[in-house]
Design a protein around this nucleic acid. Structure first.
Lengths: 127, 127
DNA sequence: CAGCATCCGCAGCGATACTG
DNA sequence: CAGTATCGCTGCGGATGCTG
């Protein structure tokens, strides 16, 4: 069986072990991918991330970072200085996840215009 | 500039053209990726999809298929037989999107155990 | 500086009933 | 068969105020 079909089969054979429902769904929220990409160039502090990721609230940055930490993609390091400094960084697994994510985001960037056109055409047809 | 950094830069430089916020966010819902994968082997009918994608409701299958159609990933073809037959299929762009998605889902499948372990470790630490 | 606690609106999603 | 229409809930996510 071709590896593609093998993956597809595993997706549908049961719900418990489905990698889409259990892994992809976790990073499919509003901010996870953006945060992961914000960390690929290296560790960064909480407020620095907050200002780089335009539009994210303090609450959601905290919450999503906690989730990413729980999944094993991100580490949280507290430096007990005054004022306190907290740095977030990707784990080896997080850096590894960034590779397929980069492929996906790269694809999205290349097809963005085509997709916007498809949306316009669809909306025009539904008038 | 390395291509990776170029993509990362475009993600954060502005909100309008961000491929994550405009493309990845669309397929980051609960069902889009599952439906796309259900169609990579070929076209399929509405109720056949519904029974293959365990747990999806009629409403969400309809809604998500419409969204995927609007994005340009899926075509909808009505065969005016009795009873009516409606087939959904991937467009060339949809099949192309399946490639980076396959990379991601494949990664997810390979790291599923490691992630489940990370979750357990995190939850144990937070006792 | 890096958060936690609280309140709350609303979009996502499911369940159910009905239709061409 | 392949939907549409409606209702209701749950949880995501934003806003605000407070703290070590």
């Amino acid at each position: 069986m071709a590896p593609e079909q093998e993956v597809v089969r595993r997706v549908f054979e049961n719900t418990e072990e489905c990698p889409i429902r259990n892994v992809v769904a976790q990073i499919g929220d509003k901010w996870s991918v953006l945060i992961l990409f914000a960390l690929v160039d290296g560790a960064d502090r909480f407020n620095a991330l907050k200002s780089r990721i335009i539009g994210i609230s303090q609450r959601m940055l905290t919450r999503t970072l906690r989730d990413l930490e729980r999944e094993g993609y991100v580490t949280r390091t507290v430096y007990p200085e005054v004022p306190v400094r907290v740095e977030y960084a990707l784990t080896p697994m997080g850096r590894d996840l960034a590779k397929p994510l980069y492929q996906l985001v790269s694809w999205a960037g290349e097809h963005h215009e085509q997709i916007k056109q498809a949306r316009q055409d669809y909306d025009k047809r539904s008038d």
